[in-house]
């Protein structure tokens, strides 16, 4: 042990150094993340128009949420983004990755092509898609529909079609990232498992469902969680494609846009903070579910 009687031991010294290096990020996190988070929790119990005092109103904002039909409309939209976004994007990205894994020629080029949309600025892409959705003669989608002898669709100007229309470029951009992760997961499965399955006479479907899928589980869980969080927080595509309105008639407005509006257009900061707390609780629940799923492996 400490035979010389003075000075810290090597172990203590290491700990001091470690904490020394950690001090800066910790201070940063406490100041820039935790403190505002706690402030937001407090603000959610107040009535605050950003220029005045914060008046404590207890659970007033949460009661208001319960009776605010526009909040529940927006919640419905948010979960529509989540459900459609996660399922469609994972399905498509798995199919692409599965076949891309089998392709040897042009593998790198194809992978890059799928990844490029992920690198593109969301707002720029959203605007391009906004033009795609225009009626004939401007919008390509409607031009194609008409050439195929089908009826034109209103897309962004329809309360039913607008949400999927906004979601499409978000999925398209997100897929590139998911494909790369799936490919890494597929590469990590040892060849010998497939060979063993083939020797045992398993067909391709059986191999897919009994070898590939179970071994991809950590990858799938990771992608479900990250994409869930991303779709729950969807904002930029909606903002750019609906001129910041989330219209028509709130058909595309997600929770984050409503929070943004409540805070920085209506300056109803307390109410916005309460909505943020609800979003936080949902995100927290998803993250905890992920931990549990990964541990029960």
């Amino acid at each position: 042990m400490n035979t010389r009687g003075h000075g810290p031991t090597i172990g203590q010294r290491r700990a001091i150094w470690a904490w020394g290096f950690l001090a800066l990020p910790i201070a940063f996190y406490v100041g820039v993340r935790f403190y505002p988070t706690i402030e937001a929790f407090y603000a959610s119990f107040t009535n605050w128009n950003i220029v005045g005092r914060k008046d404590f109103i207890g659970l007033g904002n949460y009661l208001r949420i319960a009776h605010d039909p526009s909040f529940w409309k927006v919640m419905g939209n948010t979960f529509a983004y989540l459900g459609l976004g996660v399922s469609i994007s994972l399905f498509l990205s798995f199919i692409v990755a599965y076949f891309l894994d089998k392709v040897r020629i042009g593998h790198g080029v194809l992978r890059a092509l799928y990844f490029i949309p992920h690198l593109t600025t969301a707002v720029a892409m959203a605007w391009v898609w906004r033009w795609f959705y225009q009626p004939v003669p401007v919008g390509v989608f409607n031009v194609w529909l008409v050439e195929l002898g089908l009826a034109q669709q209103p897309f962004l100007r329809s309360t039913e079609q607008a949400l999927p229309a906004v979601l499409a470029p978000a999925i398209w951009a997100g897929i590139g990232f998911q494909i790369v992760i799936f490919l890494a997961g597929l590469k990590a499965i040892p060849r010998s498992y497939y060979e063993a399955a083939e020797i045992d006479g398993a067909g391709p479907w059986r191999i897919l469902f009994e070898v590939t899928m179970p071994l991809l589980r950590p990858t799938i869980v990771f992608l479900v969680v990250t994409s869930s969080i991303a779709y729950l927080r969807i904002f930029d595509y909606v903002y750019a494609m609906t001129s910041g309105q989330g219209g028509p008639l709130d058909a595309t407005k997600p929770l984050v846009l409503k929070i943004f509006e409540t805070a920085f257009a209506h300056f109803d900061m307390g109410y916005a903070a309460a909505q943020t707390v609800i979003l936080f609780v949902i995100l927290l629940a998803i993250s905890l579910a992920q931990l549990r799923l990964l541990r029960s492996r």
Partner: peptide, 14 residues
Amino acid sequence: RKVMIDMVDQVVLK
């Protein structure tokens, strides 16, 4: 402003 936008959309879309 949103009230006015929605009012017009109600007539045109709904």
